[in-house]
Simulated scan of single mutants.
Amino acid sequence: MTDSSSVDLSKDAAARAAVALVENGMKLGLGTGSTAKVFVDRLAERVHAEGMDLRCASTSKATADQARSLGLVVEELDDLGWLDLTIDGADEVDPDLNLIKGGGAAHLREKIVATASDRMVVIADQGKVVDCLGKFKLPVEVIPFGWQSTRVHIERALAELGLEGRPVILRERDGQPVRTDENNFILDLALEEIHDAKSLANALSAIAGVVEHGFFLNICNLAIIGRPDGSVVELRREDLE
């Protein structure tokens, strides 16, 4: 079995386990990214097989398009109100169920949807589980106006936290800045290790021009980690308390 097929099986195992958590009549948040995409596929299969009645809110235009193409009902979050459950992927998961998200440039909407839910469940493969957050670059969504000044403020904030000299990189595709669904830019912070995520999160949130950072701290209730053999491991927040 190749590495890529092992990862695919891991994602599918996590997605299927998450689909089993969905109950008829739920208002459900749909995440964004490669593992969330698998989840939406598997969810649609179950909805059609069982005739389930679900109302979904999406964390990105891409996920909304996918879900609607599969026959799922997707509505605006404001029309749905509070959600029962959000299921999403993550770029990193630490032992305390803190996350880095935003590799798909959707962490603003993902955080809004996740925090408008009774529970957030993360699905991921084993490669996303880390001892310390930071190897994956921390995404920070910023407004385009004055973004270079915002980057300077971010660099100063990093220096104050002992992270001076770490690269703050404008995310680009085909030579142009990546635009989020809100038409903003993404700055990726190459930090390697983050030992005080809460202080950094607070510092970033206080900077004018920063829309949202990719830290999801104390938001995830359950992480379902898929294994290459098709099994899963569940990490629960209540087990940490």
Rank of each mutant, 00 (worst) to 15 (best):
V168E: 13
G25P: 08
A14S: 13
R227E: 10
L204D: 09
G214I: 03
A62Y: 06
L97P: 01
I219E: 05
A114V: 07
V113M: 14
D8M: 08
S205G: 07
L80M: 09
V140G: 02
A64Q: 11
V178R: 05
P177G: 09
L99T: 00
L161N: 09
L158E: 11
D96K: 02
G162L: 14
M26W: 11
A203N: 13
S34M: 10
S34C: 13
D78E: 12
A90K: 00
S199P: 10
R46N: 02
I186D: 10
R166T: 07
V74E: 13
V140N: 01
A157Y: 05
A57W: 01
V74G: 12
L222N: 03
A223H: 06
T115C: 14
L222C: 11
N202R: 14
A20T: 07
V122T: 05
Q66F: 04
K27V: 08
N202F: 12
I112S: 06
E164F: 08
P228L: 10
V233K: 09
P139A: 04
E23T: 10
E238G: 03
D84F: 00
E110P: 09
F215Y: 14
G81I: 07
V142F: 03
C132G: 03
A90T: 02
E75S: 13
K111P: 08
S69G: 15
M26P: 11
N184I: 06
L163Y: 01
L70Y: 08
D131K: 06
E76R: 13
E193M: 10
W147A: 13
T35Q: 01
K11M: 05
A18F: 04
E50Y: 00
D88G: 01
G104A: 13
R68E: 15
G165Y: 11
